[in-house]
Design a protein around this nucleic acid. Sequence first.
DNA 1: AGTACCACCTGACGGC
DNA 2: TGCCGTCAGGTGGTAC
Length: 262
Amino acid sequence: MPELPDVEIFKKYLDQYALDQKIEGIEVFENKLIRGATGKEVEEALHNDSFTSSERYGKWLLVKTKKGRALAMHFGMTGKLQYLEDGDNLPSSTRFIIEFKGKKKLAFADRRKLGGIELVKNKEDLITKHNLGPDATIISWQEFKEALHKKSRKIKTVLIDQSILAGIGNVYADEILFQSKVHPETSAAKLEEKQLKEVFKNINPVLRTAIKHQGKRKSLPDHYIIPHRKEGADCPVCGGKIEVIEVGGRTTYFCPGCQERV
DNA sequence: AGTACCACCTGACGGC
DNA sequence: TGCCGTCAGGTGGTAC
C-alpha cells in the first residue's frame, strides 16, 4: 500500500538502477495502466532518451528525462518497481516494462491495476492535473493550519485528502493521529490549536521513521500503533485495547485510551 | 463550495 | 476439500 515513505523508497531504487541508460522502448502488457496516452505515444516520447533524475511529490514519482520530458508514476495499492538484467524473469503482475540498452529493463508490476504512468510536462503540470496540495513533508505550519482549521470533516479524512496535503494514506494517518493523541473522528475545525500543532509536528517524524525502516511496518518502533494494527491488540503505550472503526470508508485503528474523542 | 460516497481492481483469507 | 463472500485502500468521478 504505497504511501509517501514507500514511494520515497521506490525513488531511491529507481535512482540507483535506472538513471542514465538509453531507453530503447517500452512494452505494455496492460494498456489501462498507461493513462491519457497510448503505449505507442509513450514509446515515441521516450525512445532514445534517458532518465536523468527523479522526484517524489506526495505519492507520485516524477521521472525526468534528458530531453526534458517527465513521466509520472503512481503505485496505487500494489504497484512496485523491479530492475531486471538480461535473463531475469519478469515479476508476476508486470503491467509494462521500460527497456534499456543492453537488455536491461525496469518493470512496473501492479497486481490490482490501480496504479499507472502518464506523461506530464513537469511537476506543476502533475500538481494541477491531479489537484494535489503541498507535499506532506514540506508543508509549513501556517499553510497546514490555514488549510485545516476550518474543515468540518473528520481529521483523519482531511489528512488523507491529497488535495489538502499530498502523501499521507490510511496507515500513516492512523499513526500520526496515535502519536498526536487525537481521535481520528474529531472534526478538524474542533481541534484546539495545540492539538492541531501536535498533529503537524508528528507528520515528519512518522514519515521519516517509516522511510528509515524501509517501509517495513512490522519493524517500526514498538511505541507505534502500526505494528499493533489488530483489533483487540494491546496498546503499546497504555495497555488498553486497540479498536477498529471505519472512518471515511477506511479501516481505522486507534486506542480509545490514548486518543480521546473531542 | 464543501463533503460524502461509490467504482475500479484482484489475491488472500476465513467460514461453512 | 473447495466454494464463495469479504476485505484491503489508492484515485477520480458523481451526487447531494
